[in-house]
Simulated scan of single mutants.
Amino acid sequence: MQNPKPEVWLRGPIPEIPALLQPAAHALLQSCEEIERYLIDFPQDKLWTKVAGRASVGFHLQHITGVLDRMMSYARAESLSEEQFSYLSKEGQADEGRTVTQLVSAFQEKTQEALSLFKTLDEDTLREVRSVGRKKLPSTTLGLLFHAAEHSQRHVGQLLVTKSVLIPPKH
């Protein structure tokens, strides 16, 4: 599965994104592109299939979208909403009403929201302390947004492995 374009981080800076957030923006956009490429024609009936007791492709798509949404709330120094807690409680549960395309689109939309947030931040904001979760664990705005990006990349890798086991590549 060849991609004619270089990876996102090799295409130059993303306009209006602060320099310190360029790597996170590149990683999120790379995740979007890879998910779309890997899941072209992915069969709906395999979306919630677990392999070797590991998470399904559907879970990975739900989870990275939810984590990105939650990290953005924490980065804005907001508590999670009831809607976010509800989404979190359903992550991992098969949602037969959602298609592969809908789950991919949801992550792509959340990534665009994140990039819009990135454009509003300056270096001073990136260094501000932020609390995470009910335990109010310490982080910073930059730490939260970097985590969202690297976390997405990790799950894209896991998604690819799961997809490759479910649908072995043709040689």
Rank of each mutant, 00 (worst) to 15 (best):
A24G: 08
R76H: 04
L20Y: 00
E113W: 05
H171S: 13
A25W: 04
M71Y: 08
S79V: 09
R134P: 00
H155Y: 01
Q93E: 13
A55M: 12
F107A: 09
L166V: 06
L61I: 09
L159V: 04
Q62N: 09
H60L: 08
S89E: 07
G12D: 08
G143S: 13
S73M: 12
Q102G: 06
T162I: 11
I17L: 09
D41F: 01
P23H: 13
H63E: 07
S89P: 00
D45H: 13
Q62G: 03
S31C: 14
Q2R: 15
Q108P: 04
H60G: 06
A24K: 04
A149Q: 03
C32K: 10
P15F: 06
E123I: 11
A55Y: 06
Q30N: 10
A77H: 13
T101R: 14
V67Y: 04
S116M: 12
D122A: 15
K119E: 11
L68H: 07
L159R: 10
W9E: 13
E91A: 02
L145E: 05
S89T: 00
C32L: 08
T111W: 04
L47K: 04
Q102A: 12
E78Q: 15
K119A: 15
L47T: 02
K46V: 01
A19L: 14
F42Q: 07
Y74V: 02
Q158W: 03
T125A: 15
S139C: 03
G53S: 05
I17T: 02
K119D: 07
T65S: 12
R37H: 10
Q102D: 08
I64W: 01
D95C: 03
W48H: 12
K110I: 04
K90H: 07
P13E: 11
G58P: 02
P43G: 09
I35V: 11
Q112E: 14
T140R: 10
A24N: 05
E82K: 10
V161I: 10
W48T: 01
R134A: 07
H147W: 03
A19R: 07
A27T: 11
L159H: 03
Q153F: 01
E36F: 05
G92D: 03
R37V: 05
K136P: 00
D45Q: 12
L126H: 05
S164R: 12
D124E: 14
K90E: 08
K170M: 07
D124Q: 15
D45G: 04
I17R: 06
E7C: 10
C32S: 15
F118P: 00
F146L: 13
A27E: 06
L88W: 07
V129H: 13
F85I: 03
T101C: 02
S81K: 04
E113L: 15
S86Q: 13
L20Q: 10
T125L: 14
L126F: 13
G53P: 00
L47A: 08
E82Q: 10
G58V: 02
L39H: 08
